[in-house]
Design a binder for these strands. Structure first.
Lengths: 215, 215
DNA sequence: GTGGTCACGTTACCGACGGTAACACCTCGC
DNA sequence: GCGAGGTGTTACCGTCGGTAACGTGACCAC
């Protein structure tokens, strides 16, 4: 048949993805198909033959990058650690990844929504959605949350993903905020430090009666 | 001079915003300028005369809607309540708002990024960013967080905003998940319930040593 | 060799978009 | 009557995502 063909095609596809990668690293997630084609030394229709449409190219590129991130997060979630260390590890894994290639990360986390008009309600990009699903599964599997564990784990998976996403985005733009400290900051938040901290002595407009951390 | 002119202009502007509002409610945040102009019974250049560019229109529309949301959240943050009740109140305010007009909310929370090419790093839409700032200010003002309170409050403001954003997006698509329960779900997360909950008895791959909720 | 096929590549185009230039009208103050 | 300044229009530009149509070279059957 075409066994050499298939290998060639796969290689070519990887080359095109490499080119798209370079352009996106350089110009951000809004890179045009023309720019990507030019970077690859070809013209648009070839890209469309390989990937169908822009969404297809983006999905291929996202899968390529997100698979390593997802693998790392999955491993971190399965590590034989205490809960706090595990959570810190997962957060650190995420932050380290986005720190090492911010443009690629932005592409994964904040893709051009014009390209994915399919999911009209998706606030979390597919990669983030996958992370949220991993998280939910880990929570449901490892923690005893009572009868409505399924929904609780799902909601928390989404919420924690959004929390780390927004925190990570903010952190990326900070200077002099060590990663390890950001990990602690986020883990502390999940550990109820906000709820447990004392009132500000200077506070005037708040009759506080802080509850304990829940029963 | 043109005092009637000015009033007319302001009225007209409001009418145009009304039209844009209707289109966005109907078609989502990706409504085109042509569609908005048509809904208003006019043509594009008039929109551009009033709002400069698409970003200007979006900003005007966002301010109009977000001001009420921001006001409500601000009030909730200043209410004389215990911390847990206050947090529940703020979350409920947000969820109630997005529940009452999901399309408008999506426009506020997930605007078409093509329109705001200015902030290349902004994951949180301006309205959400404003909410995060409110949150940070409230945290820094009301809670004693030690020496690095400023940064901690800022990071937490962002993180909590992202958490409630992602949680809210997910919740909007759920059926049969009462708002009050979602409020509890998110507040519980902030109160460290994830950290404090017992291990799942069926868990096998996790040597757990759950720390207490912080000291 | 000749003809057919098939993938690779091109140029040239389409429709929709954001945005703008140029022009027409209508209504004032004088 | 007549300019000024507002409201509105049509018609256009550049860019984008996406596609149709065409050319070219390798390979294979005969």
């Amino acid at each position: 048949m075409s066994s050499p063909d298939r290998a060639d095609r796969a290689d070519r596809r990887e080359e095109l993805l490499d080119a798209a990668d370079r352009v996106i690293r350089r110009e951000g997630p809004r890179a045009s198909m023309n720019a990507i084609a030019a970077e690859a030394g070809i013209t648009k229709p070839i890209l469309y033959r390989h990937f169908g449409d822009k969404n297809g190219l983006y999905r291929a590129l996202a899968e390529r990058h997100s698979s390593t991130l997802l693998t790392r997060i999955h491993e971190a979630l399965e590590a034989p650690l205490g809960r706090r260390e595990l959570v810190e590890n997962v957060i650190d894994t995420y932050l380290a990844s986005i720190e090492s290639a911010p443009q690629v990360y932005r592409f994964l986390a904040h893709p051009d929504p014009a390209s994915e008009g399919l999911s009209p309600a998706g606030p979390l990009a597919p990669t983030l959605q996958a992370i949220a699903t991993e998280l939910s599964a880990a929570i449901a599997g490892q923690i005893d949350l009572g009868p409505d564990r399924a929904l609780l784990a799902e909601a928390w998976g989404q919420a924690i993903t959004g929390m780390v996403l927004a925190g990570g985005d903010w952190w990326l733009e900070q200077r002099d905020y060590p990663r390890e400290r950001m990990v602690q900051t986020l883990a502390d938040l999940l550990w109820g430090r906000l709820a447990a901290a004392a009132d500000n002595p200077a506070a005037t407009n708040n009759h506080n009666g802080t509850h304990a951390t829940d029963g």
